[in-house]
């Protein structure tokens, strides 16, 4: 378990991380969201022991990062931002080096390296210098280095940045497969990633936690949560009457026209207080015998929640 208590970091007058606390348990995949400069990387650098906190504490499975940094570092696998690696080494020699520093020996070391190489698909470039590798491969070398010793805690700073969609999918699958027995904290700009891999998300801006919950809980904060999108066939002449009848339904708060032409109308219908109104609307449509082309509920958009929370 990773426990963060009242953690702060200032760089002179700049408060990069301001009094944040949270816990992550085994089996959780925590997504760290926030605009650039929000304090995501700084927090990760403190958890991994690269930066010393100005105040507060980080404990990893009972070990404090300031008091017992080596015990914490042994338990953590860390992919720093940009996946740095020694450019003049090959992935093979680089992983060998990290394995030795991590204290892996003999056949155990060999099997860990082989296992990891297979997991992140580095077989083809093992003996090429890292300098000459593509961005996607470099990122995978960084990821390999982080998971090499099968750590209890995995901290990944933008693990899928710069990868193509297939590679992103692979990395996410990899993370999901490891999730059960580990604590995983990852930062990302990509909101779809939160859905794909995270069991929990924290939105952070200006060094403070603004929201903390499951992706579904965060989405429920969206004004689009439980809003209904409906597309139906009707003539322009009848459109006004249809809009009015929808607005007269008790659960409906307001209605926006998304698109219209002379045979089709498309509406976004917002409920009062995030109530579920799809039943009402479909019932109404059937009663009125409208020719409905499309009818679905919106869960809410994470990007919209993100924007409304992080821009004041």
């Amino acid at each position: 378990m990773v426990e963060i208590k009242k953690l702060s970091k200032d760089f002179g007058s700049l408060m990069a991380v301001n009094d944040i606390s949270f816990q992550v348990k085994q089996g959780e995949v925590l997504g760290f969201l926030g605009p650039n400069g929000a304090g995501k990387s700084t927090t990760m650098k403190m958890i991994t022991g690269f930066l010393t906190p100005s105040a507060g504490s980080v404990t990893v499975n009972g070990h404090d990062i300031v008091q017992n940094p080596l015990a914490v570092k042994q338990r953590i696998g860390y992919l720093p931002e940009g996946a740095p690696a020694y450019p003049d080494m090959t992935p093979a020699s680089f992983l060998e080096f990290v394995a030795q520093v991590r204290g892996l020996r003999g056949s155990n070391k060999q099997s860990r390296i082989e296992d990891t190489v297979k997991k992140v698909h580095l077989e083809g470039v093992l003996y090429q210098s890292i300098d000459t590798l593509s961005k996607g491969f470099k990122r995978r070398v960084g990821l390999a280095q982080a998971i090499l010793h099968d750590p209890e805690v995995l901290i990944l700073d933008e693990p899928t940045d710069g990868l193509d969609p297939n590679q992103k999918h692979e990395v996410r699958t990899l993370i999901k497969n490891m999730a059960e027995e580990k604590v995983i904290i990852l930062s990302t700009h990509i909101l779809e990633e939160v859905h794909a891999v995270c069991t929990r998300a924290i939105i952070i801006a200006d060094g403070k936690i603004l929201a903390d919950g499951t992706p579904a809980e965060l989405e429920a904060k969206s004004q689009f949560h439980n809003a209904v999108t409906m597309t139906l066939h009707c003539s322009t002449a009848k459109a006004k009457q249809i809009r009015q009848s929808l607005l007269n339904l008790p659960g409906v708060q307001k209605l926006e026209t998304l698109a219209k032409n002379n045979s089709m109308q498309s509406y976004q219908i917002f409920p009062h207080a995030h109530r579920s109104i799809i039943g009402e609307i479909s019932q109404h449509a059937r009663n009125q015998q409208w020719k409905v082309e499309e009818l679905h509920v919106n869960k809410g958009r994470l990007d919209e929640v993100f924007r409304s929370i992080t821009t004041v």
């Binding site: 650098k45 991994t48 022991g49 690269f50 080596l70 570092k73 042994q74 953590i76 860390y78 720093p80 931002e81 940009g82 740095p84 690696a85 020694y86 450019p87 990290v98 520093v101 991590r102 204290g103 280095q145």
Partner: peptide, 14 residues
């Protein structure tokens, strides 16, 4: 410059 200092100093070494 290469950022590897972050990698090196988060490995379990002093």
């Amino acid at each position: 410059k290469g950022g590897t200092i972050e990698l090196l100093l988060t490995l379990p070494i002093t």
